[in-house]
Amino acid sequence: MARILVIAEHDGSSINPSTAKTLGCARDLDGAEIDVAVFAADASALAPEAAALEGVAKVLCVTDAVHAQPLAATVAPQVVELAEAYDYVFGPSTTFGKDLMPRVAALLGVNQVSDIMSVDGPRSFKRPIYAGNAIVSVSVPEGSKVVATVRTASYRAVGTGGTAAIEDVTPAAELPTHTRFVGIKTGASDRPDLQTAATVVSGGRALASAENFELIFKLADTIGAGVGASRAAVDAGYVPNEMQVGQTGKIIAPDLYIAIGISGAIQHLTGIKDAGTIVAINKDEEAPIFEVADIGLVGDLFAVVPELTQALS
């Protein structure tokens, strides 16, 4: 039976939903036994959360103070040691997984399958290239481990209710000290997380200022949505980088995506094409966003958005 190890992503207090989506992909490999590895300084809350994810056979806990902020350089050698017992090692295609997994793959002497969007067979996968303008079917040669990242927007999170065993493990790999965590700056907010929100409202360059972006926040808060932005809005400094939606930002798949004052550059569209319904509000009727929008409204956002917020409150 094929054995899969999924590397859990977390922030120290809870498991990131990207983990449940990675499991959604792992489950598509028929008859596989799936274990999850948690690297943390304190896994007392994290391990039970991982153990409750559907389809998980066992949770491996690697507890070490050095993993308070899991860094690729320190986690990778330990993953490599655990990987010995597995045929597949999967991580989410988030900045965490993108940083870590190629380091793991190189140490294991294999290439990585980046951004799996579908599983076609035990060693066959589909993945996007050229910013999603082409889809390539790839096949991993027999006899080598499959190391991969999973495009989380392509998968639904597995449910909870599982009762996996939790096992403490202590890899012997020597940990380097050449890489040190200094700090993280996050725009902490009470809004739903951009990557998991059922509804997302995004603003673009047409907002014209950080102050005007308040219009987007107001609409989002009225309908309980997460908030995103185009690259242009981030580059212009209206909002911080973690709000960027698109090829080089976050790739998301909400049920409803409302794009406001976003023209629809190809790299932005790449980030939203798995959304259920796309709504576009833009004053330029020629804007490419209307080519992919399910519902389009040509109009001045400074009039339309307050009116829409009013109508929905």
């Binding site: 290439n111 079917s137 790839v138 096949s139 040669p141 080519e291 409204l297």
Partner: peptide, 19 residues
């Protein structure tokens, strides 16, 4: 060990919706 690229396809297109 290289990963074989066995076939290429254009992405599924989203259909233009209503205005």
């Amino acid at each position: 060990p290289a990963i074989d690229e066995v076939g290429f396809a254009p992405p599924a297109e989203r259909q233009k919706g209503i205005m």
